[in-house]
Design a binder for these strands. Structure first.
Length: 432
RNA sequence: UCCACGAUAGCUCAAUGGUAGAGCAUGCGGCUGUUAACCGCAGGGUUGCAGGUUCAAGUCCUGCUCGUGGAGCCA
């Protein structure tokens, strides 16, 4: 069987006769010549059907093609400066595979509600294809980064018996005779068990939040990668996060430049994402807010607008560390030099994209951990296995979580998380 | 949960309280180099739902439904 030839490879086939298989992206007709724009998932090419060069039947078939009809087209590949991409196909044969019904997504603009209703078709659009390719490249960069640094992939369960951090609202359901169970909001506690077994691990999978959040920064189902490292303190954790983000961004910049162009992304905003990133304490962040006229009280968590003000001071992600322990999860270790703050770090993306990483050094003292569980009114019985990690060879350890869709949105420069995942799940939408 | 905004042709939108229109899409016709091609013709509407005010409501008022993005919370 001859392998299929794809549009992206056509520069290597100039002068050859090839058969391409795909869908009609658009067509223009001028009496005796038809211009068919074919897309095949790897690119777009203009195919020329001249009445004099093909049979009457083939010319008629070409005219029957509606937007998104599938067809095969044979012809000679030629260089052509008049065509987008510089390559054209001089058609000799057109075979209809399937005539498409009236396609809902036309060449004119559409509203987001309509597009998201037709998400399964919207994904065929140029920009959506570019975003999906970048998402794939980010995922590969994440895996490469950890795989090359001695990490082991460690898959946590998605069904959990309790709220992991005790704060978020989770999706709840009946689990046979064992009562309520929940969809995971984080694999972190399980990753800690993995780190004690394997040293350095990362989890990568979907997580679920049932919070009734209705903003462009929220999905009810999203993907998160969470590295967890034994014998890492907060500084080690920040070093890793910094190197990690630089690697992801620079990889996408060098490997998916054409997709960033399709998205009209200002890449100068990404080229600056190089180590070192600024590192400021929560106290310093509060000072920045006050200088910018924000009435901010020490002890509160940073809100979305606060984050935007802070991140706008810098041309690359900024790491904010040592938050008030009151606003952070129970498992975060307190700073021995100031017990009011936790050894936590949030990484804020530039341009108002908000928190893309949240991490911390974990509490390794079992007595302190038990008292935190009590303070947060969490059922200790559910955490006995987690406490065992402290009973049997407790070590300092750290980790963080990176939200995939927020990272993809930031890199792509898109304004809503729903475009960063194929089929977004939001509070008032679970279709298509 | 709270706040704000919105709903008119398949889609995107317009219409001072006074005959509901345009572009795109669709159908037919024209054009041998088009780039969201263009030109001509045609079909296409219970203006989200229910009330109210008025001689007259897409437009004003009330309620409801659905949606949008912002707050809170988070990645």
């Amino acid at each position: 069987m001859r392998p299929n030839i794809y549009i992206k490879d056509l520069p290597n086939h100039i002068g050859e006769e090839v058969t391409l298989k795909g869908w009609l992206f658009n067509q223009r007709s001028s009496g005796k010549v038809k211009f068919l724009i074919l897309r095949d998932g790897t690119g777009y090419i203009q195919c020329i059907v001249f009445k004099g060069n093909v049979s009457e039947e083939v010319f008629e078939n070409a005219g029957k093609l509606t937007q998104e009809s599938s067809f095969e087209i044979t012809g000679k590949v030629k260089k052509e400066d008049r065509a987008l991409g510089g390559v054209e196909l001089d058609a000799t044969d057109v075979k209809i595979v399937s005539i498409a019904e009236e396609y809902p997504i036309t060449k004119k603009e559409h509203g987001t509600e309509f597009l998201i209703d037709n998400r399964h078709l919207w994904l065929r659009s140029k920009k959506q294809v570019a975003i999906m390719r970048i998402r794939h490249r980010v995922v590969k960069a994440i895996r490469d980064f950890f795989d090359d640094r001695g990490f082991t992939l460690f898959d946590p369960p998605i069904i959990t018996p309790n709220a992991c951090e005790g704060t978020s609202t989770l999706f709840e359901f009946d689990y046979f005779d064992l009562g309520k169970a929940y969809l995971t909001q984080s694999g972190q506690l399980y990753a800690e068990a993995g780190a004690m077994a394997l040293g350095k691990v990362y989890t990568f999978g979907p997580t679920f939040r049932a919070e009734k959040s209705k903003t462009r920064r929220h999905l009810t189902e999203f993907w998160m990668v969470e590295p967890e490292m034994a014998y890492f303190n907060l500084d080690d954790d920040m070093d890793l996060a910094e190197e990690f983000l630089e690697y992801i961004v620079q990889t996408v910049l060098s490997e998916r430049k054409e997709d960033l162009e399709i998205l009209e992304r200002d890449v100068t905003k990404l080229e600056t994402v190089k180590r070192p990133f600024p590192r400021i304490s929560y106290d310093e962040a509060v000072e920045i807010l006050k200088k910018n006229g924000v009435d901010f009280e020490w002890g509160n968590d940073l809100g979305a607008t606060d984050e935007t003000i802070i991140s706008s001071q810098y041309d690359r992600p900024v790491m904010v560390h040592r938050y008030p322990s009151e606003v952070k999860a129970f498992y975060m270790k307190r700073d021995p030099e100031n017990p009011k703050v936790a050894l936590a770090v949030d990484v804020l993306a530039p341009e108002g994209y908000g928190e893309i990483i949240g991490g911390s050094q974990r509490e390794d003292d079992i007595e302190l951990l038990i008292s935190r569980i009590k303070e947060h009114n969490l059922p200790q019985s559910f955490f006995e296995w987690y406490l065992d990690l402290r009973r049997f060879g407790s070590v300092p350890h750290s980790g963080f979580g990176l939200g995939l869709e927020r990272t993809v949105s930031w890199i792509c420069g898109i304004d809503h998380l729903r475009e960063a995942i194929p089929f977004p799940r939001m509070i008032y939408r679970n279709t298509p």
